[in-house]
C-alpha cells in the first residue's frame, strides 16, 4: 500500500474542508472497498480523511413518511433497524445480503453509493425506491445520481451525508450472486410505491445500475408476474464477462423480476 496521511475529523464541514485542501485526498467511510483497492495498488490517495468520528452520520432518522439513513450507517445497521424492516422491508433485506457478516459490520451505505460499483447492491435500492441522495450541498434524486460505471453526479469535494427513502412496504430485492465475491451477477429491486411500480437492476448493465422501465410500465398495467413474460431486454446493453454472458444476465433479470413480483403479491 502507498504511504498516505491519515486525517481524523469530527464534522462534515471539517471533512469537506480537508477534502478540498489536500490534493488527491479521499474520504474513508467503511473502507471495505477502498482499503482492499489500495492494497492492490489500484488506488493511491495522498491522504485519507476518516469519517468514522462523525457521529451524526451514523444516525437513522425517522420522518413521517420517510427514513433518512446517515451515510456512515453500516449494512448491519440498516439490516437490523426495526423501523427500516417495518417500513421499507426490501431495503433491510438488501442490506442483509451484502458481502458477508464482517463486511456488513464495517461497510457503509454512503461508501457503496459514492463508489457506484456496477455490481453493488445499494444503487438498486436507491433507484427502486426513488431515493434522494443528500450531500453537504444539495439533494440529488437517485434517478440523476448514478451516471455510469463508478461514476456519480457528485462534484469534486462533495460529500454524501445520507439517503432519504420514502416508506415502501411493498419492496423486495432478489440477487443472483457470484459465489466467490458475493457481488451481484444480477440483482433486482422491485418496489410498489405511490407512483406505481419501480424495477431497478444492478450487476447486469453495461453502464451500471438502471431502471427496467418496460417492466415498470407492464406492471402498472397488469401487476402479475406474467406481465413481464413478453418483454425482452437488449443483450447489447448487458455486461458480458467471465462471470456471465450478456444473454444469461438478460435471462436472469426476467426470472428474478418475476419471482420478486410474485413474492410481493403473496
Amino acid at each position: 500500500m502507498n504511504r498516505f496521511d491519515f486525517k481524523r475529523v469530527d464534522s462534515v464541514q471539517a471533512a469537506v474542508t480537508l477534502l478540498c485542501e489536500i490534493e488527491d485526498s479521499s474520504v474513508l467511510a467503511g473502507g471495505q472497498t477502498l482499503i482492499p483497492t489500495m492494497k492492490q495498488g489500484l488506488s493511491a490517495p495522498a491522504a485519507l480523511i476518516d469519517l468514522g468520528g462523525i457521529s451524526e452520520l451514523r444516525e437513522i432518522r425517522i420522518e413521517e413518511d420517510a427514513i433518512v439513513v446517515g451515510a456512515m450507517c453500516t449494512h448491519a445497521d440498516v439490516a437490523n433497524s426495526s423501523s427500516i424492516r417495518q417500513h421499507i422491508p426490501g431495503l433491510a433485506h438488501l442490506a442483509g445480503q451484502i458481502g458477508d457478516a464482517q463486511v456488513r459490520n464495517r461497510g457503509t451505505i454512503g461508501g457503496s453509493i459514492a463508489n457506484n460499483d456496477p455490481a453493488a447492491d445499494y444503487p438498486a435500492a436507491c433507484l427502486g425506491l426513488d431515493a434522494t441522495i443528500l450531500t453537504d450541498k444539495r439533494a440529488i434524486a437517485a434517478d440523476s445520481f448514478f451516471l455510469g460505471l463508478f461514476e456519480t453526479a457528485l462534484d469534486e469535494g462533495e460529500l454524501i451525508t445520507g439517503v432519504r427513502f420514502r416508506h415502501c412496504r411493498r419492496s423486495t430485492y432478489l440477487k443472483f450472486r457470484n459465489p466467490a465475491s458475493r457481488f451481484a451477477i444480477v440483482g433486482v429491486f422491485v418496489g410498489r410505491g405511490k407512483e406505481g411500480w419501480r424495477v431497478a437492476i444492478t450487476g447486469a448493465g453495461r453502464d451500471g445500475v438502471f431502471r427496467w422501465r418496460a417492466a415498470e410500465e407492464a406492471l402498472n398495467g397488469d401487476c402479475r408476474p406474467q406481465a413481464l413474460e413478453p418483454l425482452r431486454l437488449s443483450i447489447e446493453e448487458m455486461l458480458d464477462d467471465i462471470h456471465a454472458k450478456g444473454d444469461y444476465r438478460a435471462h436472469l433479470i426476467k426470472v428474478l423480476a418475476c419471482d420478486a413480483v410474485e413474492k410481493l403479491l403473496r
Binding site: 491519515f6 481524523r8 473502507g31 476518516d50 468514522g52 448491519a76 457478516a101 464482517q102 459490520n105 464495517r106
Partner: peptide, 20 residues
C-alpha cells in the same frame, strides 16, 4: 477476523489508526 468494540471485522480491511 477479530472483534472491534465487540463486532467481528476483517482486520486486513481496517487500518490500525481507525482503532483509536
Amino acid at each position: 477476523v477479530v472483534h472491534v468494540d465487540g463486532e467481528a471485522v476483517k482486520s486486513c480491511a481496517m487500518l490500525a489508526v481507525q482503532c483509536e
